[in-house]
Computed example of a mutant assay.
Amino acid sequence: MKKLSLMFATVVLSVTALIGCSESSMPVEGKQFEQLPANLSTYRLPPVTEVFSLNCGHCRKMEAVIPELEKLTNQKFGKVHVTFNESAQIGAMIYYSAEMQLGKAPDHKMMEELFAAVQMGDGATLQEKKTAIDTVFTSRGLISPYDFDEEQQKQLFAAMQVADDISVKAQINSVPTFIVNGKYQVITTGHKDEQDIAATINYLIQNY
């Protein structure tokens, strides 16, 4: 009888431990993700959308792992550039000048070049930065934002206004982050690596 009781206790402890591990492996609201204050579904964002700024060093580092995140989640990420201060607005102007002409988010290589041009550092002159930005565009047969005509400027400002509306409604105050299904925001600081972030994104896509 004692042996049976001991075996029963061992099985119960094992099951409890397994349940505990199962629960702890799931993303937790408030730690790994949070619900947005507004539903952004009317903007028809891709299922996974990165919110970023070309001026942000952390965003530049995140760009390096975006291809891996896309593989791990089997998703092509969209992008929204924040506009919450003057430097972000300039970055948004540059980013949406590219997206507007391409009809989609720039590829990984172009994004890396845009980050490098915008973040040249204090040692670079304004003319050197402008030349670097011009080169990113003209090398791809695109028009530099500095050479836009009046009609192109109107289209650009319209795209920037949409981005601003999204940022305000979602109350985005730090980047980089990810919006999933237009309803949830991934808390990137609540993850240890890209595999961890991908697990939360997959969880939200599958369950929400």
Rank of each mutant, 00 (worst) to 15 (best):
F115D: 00
G103E: 11
F115M: 00
K109L: 12
L126A: 15
A105W: 04
D107R: 07
A163L: 00
I143N: 02
G91R: 00
Y95I: 02
Q155T: 07
A163C: 03
Q152L: 06
Q171P: 05
N85C: 10
K129V: 13
K130G: 10
E99G: 04
K130W: 06
A98Q: 00
L72Y: 07
N181I: 04
H81R: 10
K129A: 14
S87N: 13
D147W: 09
K76W: 08
E128Q: 15
V80S: 05
G182F: 05
Y95V: 01
Q171C: 11
V80E: 04
G141W: 05
D134W: 09
F148N: 06
D122S: 12
E128N: 10
A132G: 07
G123I: 01
Y95S: 01
A124K: 06
A170K: 03
K79D: 01
M110C: 09
A163P: 00
A159R: 07
F137L: 05
Q161A: 12
L102V: 08
T138R: 06
A105V: 15
P176N: 07
Q171F: 04
T73M: 12
V162Y: 03
A117T: 00
N181Y: 05
K109A: 15
K183W: 06
L102P: 08
E150F: 13
V175G: 01
L72P: 06
S174A: 15
I94S: 00
D122F: 05
F77A: 05
L142F: 06
T177G: 04
E113C: 03
E113G: 02
T83V: 13
Y146E: 08
E68F: 09
K129T: 15
E112T: 05
D147G: 10
I90M: 12
K79V: 04
A116R: 03
D122I: 04
R140W: 03
S87V: 14
E112L: 07
K129W: 04
P67D: 12
A159D: 06
D122G: 06
S144Y: 00
L114W: 00
A116L: 03
G78Q: 08
A159L: 11
Q89F: 08
Q153L: 14
E99I: 05
Q153F: 11
D164W: 02
P145T: 08
P67W: 14
K109H: 13
E150Y: 12
E112M: 08
S139V: 05
D149H: 10
H108N: 13
F115P: 00
Q119P: 00
F157T: 10
I90H: 09
T135Y: 08
D165K: 13
I133E: 02
L126S: 13
L102H: 10
